[in-house]
């Protein structure tokens, strides 16, 4: 991951905090996201650290001294049982699915490598996660949970959603960020308002 490059190295969406692009209600929401990282409520200590290890592979941030927190927000969602509004036939309700899924990955690591997922080399972790994504798993570790569906519908989807809800992620992809009351004027191809990220062509 040392190769990660952003075309917007000088852009920080938070610099727009006091501009007309941000209103009170948005500042309140983002302030909480930056400052009030939830404590562990739902996951066990063990599940929490396992999920951290998984998140570090699915959304690696090796260059950051303080990575964007991911697990606390997933835990909060689980604690509050905020569901997506549906589950596919064969999937247990959200909370059980997470519990079973994390246990599945832990079991899979023990089964394959005789060790804890957290202790595996990054490459081995990636290989294992890739197998889960493809559904190439040892059925005994997963109960009735479809592993591939857990991976794509819950695990990965939630992790990327949390990461890309963070202003640091918006900055690195050059997203304009919050926009109210001020929106945008220049909408066309290759058009950029002064309050948007400027791309560095290398």
């Amino acid at each position: 991951m040392s190769g990660f490059k952003t075309p917007y190295p000088d852009y920080d969406v938070l610099k727009k905090w006091d501009t007309p692009s941000w209103n009170e209600q948005t500042r309140a929401v983002i302030k909480r996201r930056l400052d009030e990282i939830p404590e562990r409520r739902f996951l066990s200590e063990d599940e929490w650290t396992l999920l951290e290890a998984i998140a570090a592979r699915l959304m690696p941030q090796p260059e950051r001294e303080a990575p964007v927190p991911i697990v606390p927000w997933i835990d909060e969602k689980l604690a509050e049982d905020r569901r997506p509004g549906y589950r596919y036939v064969g999937m247990p309700p959200m909370r059980e699915a997470w519990r079973q899924g994390l246990a599945g990955i832990a079991g899979e690591a023990r089964e394959r490598h005789g060790t804890d997922f957290r202790d595996l080399e990054p490459d081995a972790q990636d290989a294992l996660l890739g197998a889960v994504q493809r559904g190439e798993i040892d059925g005994r570790q997963w109960g009735d949970l479809p592993a591939d569906r857990f991976f794509s519908e819950l695990l990965l989807k939630e992790i990327v959603a949390v990461y890309y809800s963070h202003p640091a992620a918006w900055s690195e992809i050059g997203f304009g960020g919050p926009a109210s009351p001020r929106g945008y004027v220049r909408l066309g191809l290759d058009e950029r308002d002064p309050w948007e990220a400027e791309e560095q062509h290398v």
Binding site: P20, P181, W195
Partner: peptide, 8 residues
């Protein structure tokens, strides 16, 4: 945003 949003 009115005049507060003058830049737009």
């Amino acid at each position: 945003g009115g005049w507060h949003n003058w830049s737009q």
